[in-house]
Simulated scan of single mutants.
Amino acid sequence: MSLTLILSQLLNGLQYGVLLFLLAAGLTLVFGIMSFVNLAHGSLYMLGAYFAATTFNLTNSFVLAVLGALVGCLVVGVILERVAVSRLYRRDHLDHVLVTFGMVLFFNEMVQILWGTQPLFLPVPSWLDSTVSILGMTYPSYRIAIIVVGLLVAVGAHWLIHKTRLGMLIRAGSVNPQMVGALGVNIKLLNALLFALGAVLAGLAGAMAGPILSVQSGMGEPVLITTLVVIVIGGIGSVSGAFYAALVVGVADTLGRAFLPTLLREFMARDLANAAGPAIASMLIYVLMAVVLAIRPQGLFVGGKK
């Protein structure tokens, strides 16, 4: 097991973690402040990938493809919030789950009608289709770009939450939304802004994931489940908690899938180890979530402030 391989897998885990953070950041705010269970968040990620692929095919520009994903998901997010989500804020969480699950089914069928059942492919932009040298090893430039974008979003989110008036209202709303509303803050507008922000971040994640994954119907559900694990571990409503938890989950899942089969070969047959390794790696993050819920249900990274 070489140092180069370990470093490469650590970078893969970091890249996966920042993608999870892009999804988790908006979703944790929607959970924490609006107390809204949005299972359709993964569908916004899927739509972001489709919008990016379509825009790229029309313009042959990756930058415009990302902008198309951001604008498209912003429009979809605003429409969803105004038409359906805003009517559910005072309803039970079970209603949230049922309605947003219906949205998942609707969007999966919609993309098959509009784009067909065959996967779409978004190529890596030519100016990032290369490798960079890191500590004596080469690593794809595009994956480095994903890490950089994720870190920039994390810095921007920290600035928004902790250094602006909107962030102050968001933090106050996550603690006592009734009091914030009583002080004259337009809670409906704040909720709409938060939902739109979450939709934009989900679209950005979909656009960035497009060149390394196939763009297809249903691609949002698996990553949504992992995102929910991230939110529970990091602490519902905490953007910084979502960031740290996303890195933990991303690195743990990636390293587990890469190295557990090798370790298990010492104790069992090769074929069995190759099959059991990824499965055990997938289970580990859920075991971690269960431990966090049992020991620190508010989340590992939630301190005195969010």
Score class of each variant (00 low, 15 high):
29 L>M: 11
88 L>S: 12
114 L>M: 09
301 F>E: 06
150 G>Q: 09
41 H>W: 00
116 G>A: 08
136 G>L: 15
299 G>M: 00
14 L>G: 01
288 L>H: 10
287 V>L: 15
250 G>M: 03
102 G>D: 13
103 M>C: 07
150 G>F: 03
38 N>W: 03
109 E>D: 14
258 A>Y: 08
151 L>T: 12
192 A>S: 09
82 R>C: 00
211 P>F: 05
233 I>V: 15
18 V>W: 01
228 L>V: 13
258 A>R: 09
8 S>V: 14
63 V>C: 04
247 L>D: 01
75 V>Q: 04
1 M>I: 12
181 G>M: 12
171 R>T: 04
246 A>S: 10
115 W>Y: 14
13 G>A: 12
120 L>A: 11
292 V>E: 12
142 Y>C: 08
163 K>Q: 10
108 N>H: 01
211 P>V: 06
205 A>W: 00
187 I>S: 05
268 M>V: 13
97 V>K: 04
171 R>E: 01
153 V>Q: 11
268 M>E: 11
59 T>K: 13
213 L>P: 00
230 V>N: 03
247 L>P: 04
75 V>N: 05
268 M>W: 13
83 V>S: 14
277 G>L: 12
91 R>N: 12
157 A>G: 07
184 G>K: 10
30 V>S: 00
162 H>G: 02
71 V>W: 06
217 S>T: 07
204 L>P: 01
260 L>Q: 08
246 A>C: 02
274 N>H: 11
25 A>Q: 01
